[in-house]
Design a protein around this nucleic acid. Sequence first.
DNA 1: GCCCGCCTCCATCAATAGTTGGAGGCGGAA
DNA 2: TTCCGCCTCCAACTATTGATGGAGGCGGGC
Lengths: 217, 217
Amino acid sequence: MVAQEPIRVLVVEDHHVVRQGLVALLNVVEGIEVVGEAADGMEAIAQFRRHQPNVTLIDLRLPRMGGVDVIQRIRMETPHARFIVLTTYDGDEDIYRALQAGARAYLLKGMTTDELIATIRAVHSGKSHIPPVIAQRLAERMGTEELTPREFDVLEQIVHGKSNKEIAGELDISEATVKTHINSLLGKLGVTDRTQAATAAIQRGIVPLESLRKPTS
Amino acid sequence: MVAQEPIRVLVVEDHHVVRQGLVALLNVVEGIEVVGEAADGMEAIAQFRRHQPNVTLIDLRLPRMGGVDVIQRIRMETPHARFIVLTTYDGDEDIYRALQAGARAYLLKGMTTDELIATIRAVHSGKSHIPPVIAQRLAERMGTEELTPREFDVLEQIVHGKSNKEIAGELDISEATVKTHINSLLGKLGVTDRTQAATAAIQRGIVPLESLRKPTS
DNA sequence: GCCCGCCTCCATCAATAGTTGGAGGCGGAA
DNA sequence: TTCCGCCTCCAACTATTGATGGAGGCGGGC
């Protein structure tokens, strides 16, 4: 193989062990050089500016600014920046938004090292790579109508266990309006009651599970 | 430091990258030797039998038999076996059951390498180690009453979006009985309606999120 | 300007869901 | 045996939820 500039990679991942593992794996690979690491969103942006990597490997779940926002922010400054999203399981919503934001590839953490390396090379040379599992979910999602902002607000409250009356109070609208929104979002989500709406929202990542911990705010 | 037998460690983790990272990290540490790796529950048991490790590092979410079951099975054969549970986030229920099953330590994947090593050494020398965050959740959980098996069945159906009538059909009991169980489990979970019960069940890991994917079985 | 989607609200109705206060059977522990 | 927890069921009631078919205002795109 001809001697070439190595692919400069930035690794953004908040779990120490996973991050160190990734770096260790990648640094022994010929033609790949890890030029930076970040454990949260802010740090990721700083590191990107400093190192201008060819490819950024990024987890979507990050402290201080989620992965999707990081991708968007960086792409505003550097439109040609290339991202590989690296995540464990995650709801469909995040996948969708990450790709919208400009990620070129999506990898589940269960992949092999070879797949990871092949994907880095592919993305660096301008290709995209979406695993079949993910592609299928995206396809399923496509038929789905978008929720309006207000419907989203209501759905969020439903997931947090609020009654219609409470939601009305919270959003400062009448209970009738809440019902209207619910009726509409039930249809869009393809479910028949609020409980199904709540689990669907969690499962699809529309409302993050973390927000359930201590929600009383 | 005096030359000693190294601590023999088995790593059980289904994500290739994470597992390889862990192994790479641990193998450079003085006094620790990774004697085996497993990517699922069955393999874990086989590897344990073969290598008889001093400490087993185990993820709770595994294909083909969950981590908790693995711990229980191994401890039946080898009661003195020592486990460190290693997991990302996970509901309280799993933590609780893992400790019940005999795990000596619980580590979140966000920990540092130093913490990991320190914990391995501690557990090997017979100590336990539960992070404060986890300990606190366990404490909160303690006041909680256990659900009866039947209540659990009903809760599961609720999470899957079934109506009372459907649940009655599914469990082959009357709708009245379903209501009785629901009334009881709402109290035990400290919630006021089925939607809250569903999100609580998911959030606490009582009903696994994965079971929501394509549940129609 | 006109249309369309979104947000807001209304009334009315039917269907679920949740509450209360029972009751009987069954099996294990004391 | 007696007690207790669990499972089963009931009636009767209230509260909540979801369905339906409106209606007006507001703002952006054509």
